[in-house]
């Protein structure tokens, strides 16, 4: 069995990384990091092949291509909010009746939307960050060998994936892939989709195995 600690840490990183990429436009610093890291580039197969990605000045790439694509996808076309997909009329539901918010609250979390530009707590970036928080807690529990807590936290993660972030994101990210004009965001959507699916499978597997 592979090192569970490492695995959990990796999950944390992944959730965090994806959250960052989806919550806001990418910044040159992060972009450069990706460029420089072979392993990371593995996540962006299409972007790797993209000429402009290598040739254009990073700042310009961000301003002229990536930001435009971000706006086109996430601001103008496919709102990255769970409630848009879940309710009939496609409203964003930022109110206290939002099921995702209720989920957060029930499990002892609150959202400070002022930290982001998200209009609602069920933005995909926030949901990813939430998962990250849960996994972070799992890591803490693992470190102090609190079996029950670990189990509990994994339950919550599973539930959240099943009911929320693993659910609506499937059609959502497919739609994003469809609309994305830059290979970069195509890859982001693809990677996120794959990751979420595999993470759920991972949690199921853990359940079946004895700890």
């Amino acid at each position: 069995m592979e090192n569970i600690i490492e695995m959990t840490q990796a999950r944390i990183n992944m959730y965090g990384f994806l959250s960052r990429l989806l919550i806001e436009e990418v910044d040159p610093f992060t972009l450069n990091k990706i460029k420089e890291n072979e392993d990371l580039l593995e996540l962006f197969p299409n972007t790797k092949e993209w000429e402009d990605f290598w040739e254009k000045d990073t700042m310009k790439l961000v301003e002229e291509d990536l930001n435009v694509d971000f706006t086109t996808i996430f601001i103008l076309n496919v709102y990255p909010y769970e409630s848009v997909f879940v309710n009939d009329e496609g409203h964003i539901n930022p109110t206290i009746t939002n099921p995702t918010l209720i989920f957060y609250r029930e499990h002892g979390y609150s959202i400070d939307l002022n930290k982001t530009r998200a209009l609602s707590p069920d933005h995909i970036g926030v949901e990813l960050e939430f998962m990250m928080n849960l996994v972070q807690e799992e890591l803490n529990a693992l470190a102090r060998e609190d079996e029950n807590e670990v189990k509990r936290l994994r339950e919550i993660q599973k539930k959240f994936l099943e009911e929320h972030i693993g659910n609506w994101t499937v059609p959502y990210l497919l739609a994003v892939k469809d609309i994305a004009e830059t290979p970069f965001y195509y890859d982001v959507a693809d990677a996120t989709l794959e990751f979420l699916m595999s993470d759920l499978e991972y949690l199921y597997n853990l359940e079946e195995q004895p700890a």
């Binding site: 409203h91 109110t95 206290i96 009746t97």
Partner: peptide
């Protein structure tokens, strides 16, 4: 409330 693009108009519980 429906038309507001930024949810400045929103329902309370």
């Amino acid at each position: 409330e429906r038309i507001c693009p930024v949810s400045a108009l929103h329902y309370l519980p």
